[in-house]
Design a protein around this nucleic acid. Structure first.
Lengths: 338, 338
DNA sequence: CTGTTAGCGCATTCAG
DNA sequence: CTGAATGCGCTAACAG
């Protein structure tokens, strides 16, 4: 391995001078800089980040903790995060928690060990709170993305306008004449699920529609079979059967549609569907799902930007909260007047 | 920061003993081990990986260099790689090259600096060869995945059976009665594109079908507009117009179908389409595309396994080549007899 | 503008 | 089974 000592010897300068050249510090004469740079190239020198981090306590890796890269929403988040990280000279460490607190906890331990400069975290659920807050005492900058934790007063966050967008989605259904609207939600221990549910409930109230406990369903945000829930919905007497379903994330919406299809229920003719987020449609030319689509790329990109600002200590002391508006698309899945 | 010295002092042992406990080395009495472990927990000690890597030259991070996580194939590859890495206690650094040699080169430099234990690389193209081979002298284990480089005699690789699967795809078309088969391919500087093209050509030859240069199209493997190529194809006099198209990756197939739709050409009625890889269909219940589907997860998972074996020096000296068979699915997009 | 000294936190080596 | 000494490659702090 080529070290700054090798460079220094060959350039007839001190290792410190080499270090200064590498770190582009001022106060180096052009002549020595050029000389040293030439030798760095010649010897194909690569700085040793471990040594750098050890002594300076400043690392160039950032940890991204999400639930699953395989979820198209988080795929794009990861891409946005990586793009911004690279721009600023940071490397991205990818962690999938699968909404599992133990995995998450393990990753957070690793993040501390690695000496990550900071982390972008989409918390698994409310149980994540304590572990994440424990990062404060390590002085590791954190930005929460997509999901937040309860009573967060210390971390920056980039979140969605869950309540507003949910309201718009529900109001769209109401305009279409729907009154019996079910919600198939993720775990209420996840902030986004809670906020979307609140948006749903407050909008019903606002429009004088009674809330029915039986229309509230809780599953999880992963891609799985929710035909049991759908069966329950279809077992209601026809006059009580929901005419519309608010599926609160992409996977829930798709699973719902799939389960309905299997039961020969037509969307939107028999039941309308609205969703929060969808999946990229490479195939269809006409989008089908009515959806509040989050700007996934920016969750990663802007989140990373806030994080880097904090790492490089150019951010205000107060934690910042960026609310990214979703874009609403009303397509076929809810395109029928009752 | 809590260090082994803090632990040592509190436990009344030497730092070295603490180090031994942490590294689970033998030759520690149960009593001292337990005592030390208790204090490690109490003080919430996290080993400093930079220091560890610096002194031992063994790091616990692995770099994954792919073209784009946003490509569903690589999304799954990344997930497989991450899963295996975590199992073995490694962290994954994610890099997207966008098929760009400069980005790739930058990432390889970073990988050296970071002191990555190894890397899983899907090379951008043939121009990647020299840079990747330069890693040999740093003694950093490398496993090539999906794509390979020319004259590779040193690196492990996990690749697809591109020729065989291409042959099966083409033979399927031939059985359906097709003789005029076009290929829309990625850059021939990418090994997979070359191999798929070779499979295509040799199969035509095998079946006594003449090769036409005009049926060979080259675009790239990213998701973009290839309507120009499709227009060219449609401008052939009708008796020369291909009745089938082999689109050599997921994005090319989808773009082709989209472009054909726009021109009101029906698939498979007017033109049949076969593809290498597709995208996950969360929505459709009936798969549409006829495809050789690669076991993406295993490209990551097995690739990571080989890499870790090499890092931990339990692999045979000779480079290994794992060829993962694709699964063939013949669906609607080619389901018509001529 | 450049050099010297010291030490980051840990594991390797050698002693005992 | 345990400990002491040493140095990994680099930069902060100070000196000149």
């Amino acid at each position: 391995m080529v070290t700054i000592y090798d460079i220094a010897k060959k350039a007839n300068v001190s290792p410190m001078t080499v270090s200064r050249v590498i770190n582009k510090s001022a106060n180096i004469s052009d002549k020595t800089r050029e000389k040293v740079e030439a030798i760095i190239k010649e010897l194909n020198y690569h700085p040793n980040n471990s040594a750098r981090t050890l002594v300076s306590k400043k690392s160039k890796t950032i940890t991204l903790i999400i639930t699953d890269v395989t979820n198209p929403f988080f795929t794009i988040v990861a891409r946005g995060a990586e793009d911004k990280a690279l721009q600023a000279g940071y490397q991205l460490i990818l962690c999938n928690t699968d909404e599992n607190n133990e995995k998450e906890s393990k990753y957070i331990d690793m993040l501390i060990s690695t000496g990550s400069a900071g982390a972008l975290i989409a918390p698994a659920n409310d149980n994540s709170t304590r572990k994440i807050k424990s990062l404060i005492k390590y002085d590791i900058p954190i930005v929460l993305i997509d999901r937040t934790i309860k009573n967060n007063t210390v971390f920056d966050q980039v979140v969605s306008d869950n309540d507003t967008s949910s309201r718009k989605l529900i109001e769209h259904l109401i305009e279409k004449g729907h009154r019996k609207i079910a919600i198939i939600n993720g775990p209420l221990t996840i902030s986004t699920a809670r906020e979307r549910q609140e948006g749903y409930l407050s909008t019903l109230k606002l429009h004088g529609i009674e809330k029915h406990e039986k229309y509230l369903f809780e599953s999880n945000f992963q891609y799985n079979d929710i035909s049991k829930i759908v069966s329950k919905i279809l077992k209601f007497p026809i006059e009580e059967r929901p005419t519309a379903i608010f599926a609160t994330n992409n996977f829930l919406a798709l699973s719902t549609i799939k389960a309905l299809k299997k039961k020969n229920i037509k969307v939107p003719d028999d039941i309308a569907i609205i969703s929060y987020d969808d999946v990229p449609s490479y195939t269809e030319d006409e989008p089908f799902l009515s959806v509040a689509r989050q700007p996934a790329y920016n969750f990663g990109y802007i989140g990373m930007q806030l994080l880097i600002e904090r790492i490089e200590e150019v951010a205000p002391k107060e934690p910042r909260k960026i609310v990214l508006p979703s874009e609403l698309y009303f397509n076929s899945s809810s395109d029928k007047n009752l």
